[in-house]
Amino acid sequence: MQTVFSIGVDALAYGMVLFVISIGLSVTMGLMRVVNLAHGAFAMIGGYIASYAARDLGLAYAVAVMLAVAGTILIAIPIERLLYRRIYGQPELTQVLMTIGITFCIIGIANYVFGPTLKTIPTPETLREPVSLGFRTVSSHRLFVIACGAAVALGLWYFIERTAFGVKLRAAVDNAAMAAALGVRTQVVYAVSFAVAVGLAAFGGVVGAELLPIEPYYALRYMVTFLVVVSVGGAGSIPGALAACLLLGAIDTTGRYLMPEFGEFFFYLAVIAIVWLFPRGLAGRAK
């Protein structure tokens, strides 16, 4: 029972981290139709900035998180303007090559600047103590992560479904040319969504650093995980992405607990099975 419970908590926390990081990818992919393999690299940049701020500069955790989000967005803006702009609407292969090139560059630079070792982000005291739920105690960090994921999901839902910007965003996702003709400034919509996506990636990278440790090959190692979430959930769908994250988080965590010697074998097997069964994603629409 204890095992089932801790698997459940860990799976939920892992799924929420995946959700926070990949939801931005899902939204931008649905909006801009760019296969962005470099998304994990932005999460990694966020993790590095937070680690530098909290460990080397000794700043508070909350400040480090904010710095990481802001810093990553600052780094991402020129990349978007100079490189991503040119691949909107291009064939998939071109997009894959460009974004994988960006990923390789970021990995190489991170390796050069920060070295090949694992980076930790020191968490404040309150997040390190276990919390009693009455019948069980759980790590408060896990609870914090789960709460962050839930907050992001709710916030995004409100942002997309209930605000004026969300209306424009959905219009641009459905038909960018038509939205532009009706006076929606799609360039602004694109830029804001890209910034939000990158910021969320950085946030997820920092919050989830205990589950997905920050190191130079982070971007490559979890690239497939983030892409899987999007393709399983269906690009642009928040409920789809949430369902995919929780499902994949559960599969991966259970596999690690019960059969650690098989590594990620079952995870990839599940990925193939799920994509095989739902080639358009759980909540995907026909093209």
Binding site: M29, V35, E92, V96, M223, V224, L227, V228, V230, S231, A235, Y268, V271, I272, V275, W276, P279, R280, G281, K287
Partner: peptide, 11 residues
Amino acid sequence: GLPQLVLSIAI
């Protein structure tokens, strides 16, 4: 499209 790419990476 994307799911195809994901399948190839998973393989």
